[in-house]
Amino acid sequence: MTFTLQTVRVANVLNEEGMLVFDKEQQLLAVLTQLGDQYGDLSGYWYLEAGFGRAETRDPPRVGDLDAAQRWIRQRLAGEH
């Protein structure tokens, strides 16, 4: 499954760089943010800020890069939890 990515600024307290993830019908699946330097050990990771539908979770993952984030979303859409 191919996703479309679109950069965005997220208006949380740290005004982070984010990414919107759409499916091929241009439906919004997830909002990711990249954690900045102020997060210490967590900085640089991509974090699932919000997921929709099957990508909604109580346990938002943080992953090393956008490929890993898309793999995670793909697995969720395939019904793997």
Partner: peptide, 17 residues
Amino acid sequence: LGVSTVHVNRVLQEMRA
């Protein structure tokens, strides 16, 4: 608290600020 560690980190930074 039932939130992610990222969220905890963020909230603590905000409370500090």
